[in-house]
């Protein structure tokens, strides 16, 4: 009977975590619409959202500025957490993530290159071009990381390799931006620091489609992901085609990381900190729970961080990574210390 009660307490825990995440998600959306240079009362928000009626300035601000930005934080934050979770699964290490491995910076470099070239010669950049460039950049950076992983089998060295790739890509990006003497340089600069500001509705459609499709695909991969968490050999003995599965993991995590970078620039620590916090809350690693919870958690985390980035020094926007690092890095440090202790 103890097993039965064990299952029940676990279920109650899972339900509670999801309830809290959903509540926080909803509350943060309202809060984000509510505050800013123009205050929108909570009572008005429902009216504006559901009927579109109300004070013209307020409707404009909510629909044109705040909603796209909120959706970007929610969806891209979720995508980032998901990408981190996939990379952690792939490398079998909780400290892997799109930012530390240099994947985000790889995308950033490619996107900057495409933007500058396209703006100069075609004076036009489509969202899809950016996504494609970001994806290509992410895959290229991933290829370098995998090469490094093959040469050095130590995880810490892999992270060092990732950080070096990240520095090189960032340096080249800054170099490119210095050459782009366009009016877009301001935009380009704030984007290369990572920010949800300036999100357009056309962007929302593109990244939502990509991220949500990836979410569904990843969710339906939760069974082989669970098997893979036990180690490659065991996964294979359970009937997983490991080679094909690894390709799928790389493809999806790079697409997610690239997509986020294309629209919001590189954002640090979300990919590591969120899945870790979620595992801690759920007290399980089961992908079928961790995947949706990480997605929600990533959204909550980024909504919260973007709120601070937006309001702390209003009207100046801070780069989102400044805030995510402030909250995410301590989580990572605590996690590393705890793991080290557990091993001793």
């Amino acid at each position: 009977m103890t097993k039965q009660t064990g299952f029940q307490t676990a279920r109650a825990r899972y339900a509670a975590v999801f309830a809290v995440l959903l509540a926080a998600f909803a509350a943060l959306i309202v809060w984000n619409i509510n505050t800013g240079s123009v205050h929108v009362p909570v009572r008005e928000i429902a009216r504006i959202l559901f009927t579109g009626a109300g004070d013209d300035t307020q409707v404009g601000i909510v629909w044109k500025l705040r909603m796209p930005r909120i959706l970007a934080a929610a969806v891209l934050g979720g995508g980032l957490a998901l990408s981190g979770f996939l990379m952690q699964t792939f490398f079998g290490n909780p400290i892997a993530g799109p930012f530390v491995l240099g994947i985000s910076s790889g995308s950033k470099l490619c996107v900057a290159l495409v933007m500058i070239v396209a703006l100069r010669y075609f004076s036009f950049v489509s969202s899809w071009m950016l996504v494609l460039a970001a994806f290509a950049g992410a895959l290229t950076a991933m290829a370098f990381v995998l090469l490094a992983a093959r040469a050095i089998r130590q995880m810490s060295m892999l992270l060092v390799a990732g950080i070096m790739i990240s520095y090189i890509c960032s340096a080249v990006t800054e170099f490119l931006i210095a050459f782009a003497k366009d009016s877009d340089i301001v935009n380009l600069h704030s984007w290369s620091q990572g920010s949800f500001s300036g999100t357009k509705w056309s962007h929302v459609g593109v990244f939502s489609a990509i991220v949500l499709i990836c979410l569904v695909l990843v969710f339906f991969m939760s069974k082989p992901i669970g098997a893979f968490q036990m180690g490659e050999s065991y996964a294979q003995s359970m009937g997983v085609n490991v080679r094909r599965f690894r390709v799928a993991l790389i493809f999806l995590s790079s697409l997610l990381a690239g997509c986020v970078t294309a629209f919001a620039g590189p954002i640090s620590f979300v990919g590591i900190a969120v899945p870790h916090l979620i595992r801690l809350l759920l007290k399980t690693e089961k992908p079928i729970l961790v995947i949706p919870a990480s997605f929600l958690g990533g959204g909550v985390f980024c909504l919260f961080c973007d709120y601070i980035a937006r309001t702390a020094f209003a009207p100046t926007d801070m780069p989102i990574s400044t805030v995510t690092a402030l909250f995410g890095a301590p989580v990572v440090i605590v996690m590393m210390i705890r793991r080290h202790r557990a091993r001793l």
Binding site: G239, R279, E285
Partner: peptide, 22 residues
């Protein structure tokens, strides 16, 4: 294929079984 094989053959390996919180 691996799936067919997994219904016929099971293993206990020397390799440590990874995975946490299990």
């Amino acid at each position: 294929n691996y799936k067919e094989l997994s219904k016929k053959l099971a293993v206990v390996l020397t390799e440590r079984l990874r995975g946490e919180l299990l």
